[in-house]
């Protein structure tokens, strides 16, 4: 009896110590802060854009992977639809996330590509309750274009859920536009228009590549 008792105590303490060491390990391997993470992603994207590799398709693919790793497209999709998110079916949600991800990727890439040659500096970061705001500035010939990233902590990763350019939140902007389209034309029409737009953008890109 005494042996069993001792054994169980030993086991329990062993369990606790292993748990607490695991906790300590987890605490020491804290991921980078939001500013560092944004800096890494933006710099990596700019580096890929700047280095003139022959294969444009591959370059595009690499950037796409980086954006998808750092942008929380599900949260962004919810933000873009606002209250309408709750009204639509699960199937429509899935479709919307897929289409909206592609559209946003194109938009963000288009903007960042325009400023490839410009210097980017990183400003303040502020963190509160699992969310963060990181300020960045693009220096375009004496004019500073402020781009603020809003992030949400998912596990160890700070994921972008909104990009604010010159005080204009992209997500709010999409929400406002889409609300108007939904009000007059409905969800099916919106999804249709989105896929048409993506097709247009892809064709434009293809023709640009052919021209280059």
């Amino acid at each position: 009896m005494k042996k069993i008792w001792l054994l169980s105590v030993l086991l329990l303490t062993g369990l606790f110590t292993s748990l607490s060491t695991a906790e300590i390990v987890a605490a020491t391997v804290v991921a980078d802060g939001p500013k560092v993470q944004i800096e890494q992603t933006v710099n990596a994207i700019l580096a890929v854009l700047r280095c003139d590799v022959g294969d444009e398709v591959e370059q595009r693919q690499r950037i796409s992977t980086m954006i998808r790793k750092k942008f929380d497209f599900k949260v962004m999709s919810q933000g873009a639809l606002g209250r309408n998110w709750k009204v639509i079916s699960a199937d429509e949600r899935e479709k919307f996330i897929t289409l909206f991800s592609s559209l946003l990727e194109e938009t963000y890439l288009g903007r960042i590509r325009a400023y490839t040659d410009q210097e980017v500096s990183y400003g303040e970061e502020s963190i509160r309750k699992g969310r963060a705001v990181v300020e960045t500035f693009i220096h375009n010939g004496g004019v500073e274009i402020p781009i603020t990233y809003k992030l949400i902590l998912q596990g160890q990763d700070w994921m972008v859920y909104d990009v604010v350019i010159e005080k204009v939140s992209l997500i709010r902007n999409y929400r406002s536009s889409y609300k108007n389209i939904l009000r007059s034309k409905g969800m099916t029409h919106l999804l249709e228009q989105m896929s048409v737009k993506i097709e247009e953008l892809r064709q434009r890109e293809a023709s640009e590549e052919a021209a280059a």
Binding site: L103, E106, A114, R172, I181, K197, L201
Partner: peptide, 25 residues
């Protein structure tokens, strides 16, 4: 850097996009 061109190319309704951007700003 062709800001307006990209709005026209990328947005479903450039009028709505411009309107909201102006008001937010």
């Amino acid at each position: 850097k062709d800001t307006y061109e990209s709005i026209v190319a990328e947005q479903l309704d450039p009028y709505l996009f411009t309107r909201d951007a102006y008001v937010q700003n």
